[in-house]
């Protein structure tokens, strides 16, 4: 459980970081919170020959509001997201999702951008990014800044559309008006475990009718899965107060469960994951209404 030999560098600026990535993109790895990378290195599943520690680079952490967007710096710790203020639907959603990320020590060290760049299809931030059609801002010395929509960002497990010399710098999310009802529900065997299935939802509701619906599911595919079937089921329908037992929730849950093609593994076979999709989707919708 000791990593193979590697070089460790700790740049002091973004420019220096991008220079280092430019020199040896294939063999370098960026170290932020290290909550996934370091264990993988200890298991020797990851063997970067150079580790670029961005913990001293200024300007990469923190959140800011820019018009109708919320921008989250890549090195913002999970705990900082969990401690975010704000009574708007987006802040509530982020806080509720953050509470599901690992345990307190992991949330204290692990980062928002690190989780996205790691691209685990069941991770909370990957789901939220895909749900809200976030914009990923990446930067390299060779090509400067570019933006990647979340829909194009996640390619597979542990694989994103970023080039090896690129750094994820920040993520921009749309702020949500008061007509939005958001929810986040995940199922794990123990508190703090990786989700077996997670579902997050965002409904825009006007005069009791769903005008816009987004449903994103983790744990059923190689990337966060937007359930078009569930979204179509919800749009245009009237929301019951007791949504958990409503025919609409049941219909949406069935639509999502039929649409997904989940894997079978030691944590649950495909039929069980479909059951979990039903249960988590219902629970996520109920959260949105219960607020």
């Amino acid at each position: 459980m000791k990593p193979s030999s590697f070089e460790y560098v700790r740049p002091e600026s973004l420019a220096e970081t991008l220079d280092l990535l430019h020199q040896d993109p294939e063999e370098s790895k960026v170290l932020a919170g290290g909550q996934s990378l370091v264990p993988m290195m200890n298991f020797r599943l990851a063997r970067p020959s150079r580790l670029i520690d961005i913990n001293r680079v200024p300007g990469l952490a923190g959140t800011r509001v820019e018009g109708d967007r919320l921008v989250i710096g890549t090195r913002t710790r999970h705990l900082a997201v969990q401690n975010m203020s704000g009574a708007d639907p987006l802040a509530r959603l982020l806080r509720s999702a953050a509470a599901h990320v690992g345990h307190l020590p992991i949330r204290t060290r692990g980062t928002f951008g690190g989780s996205l760049a790691h691209s685990d299809a069941a991770s909370e931030w990957c789901l939220i990014a895909r749900l809200l059609d976030a914009t990923m801002v990446v930067e390299s010395r060779a090509r400067g800044r570019r933006e990647i929509p979340a829909a194009d960002f996640f390619l597979s497990i542990f694989t994103t559309a970023m080039e090896p010399d690129e750094l994820l710098v920040e993520v921009s999310l749309p702020r949500l008006g008061d007509e939005h009802r958001t929810g986040f529900a995940e199922f794990a065997r123990r508190a703090g475990d990786f989700a077996i299935v997670a579902v997050t939802t965002d409904l825009a509701v006007e005069k009791g009718v769903v005008t816009h619906a987004r449903v994103c599911i983790g744990g059923v595919a190689d990337t966060p899965f937007r359930s078009g079937a569930a979204e179509a089921t919800l749009v245009g329908q009237r929301l019951d107060d007791d949504i958990a037992t409503s025919p609409l929730a049941r219909a949406a849950a069935e639509a999502a469960a039929s649409e997904v093609d989940p894997p079978s593994d030691a944590h649950g076979d495909a039929p069980y994951r479909r059951d979990l999709v039903r249960a988590m989707l219902t629970s996520s919708l109920a959260q949105g209404v219960a607020r």
Binding site: F187, R189, Y272, D275, L276, R278, A279, T282, S283
Partner: peptide, 9 residues
């Protein structure tokens, strides 16, 4: 023991 119907937990 209490059991959640939807997940079996």
């Amino acid at each position: 023991v209490q059991i959640d119907r939807g997940t079996g937990k």
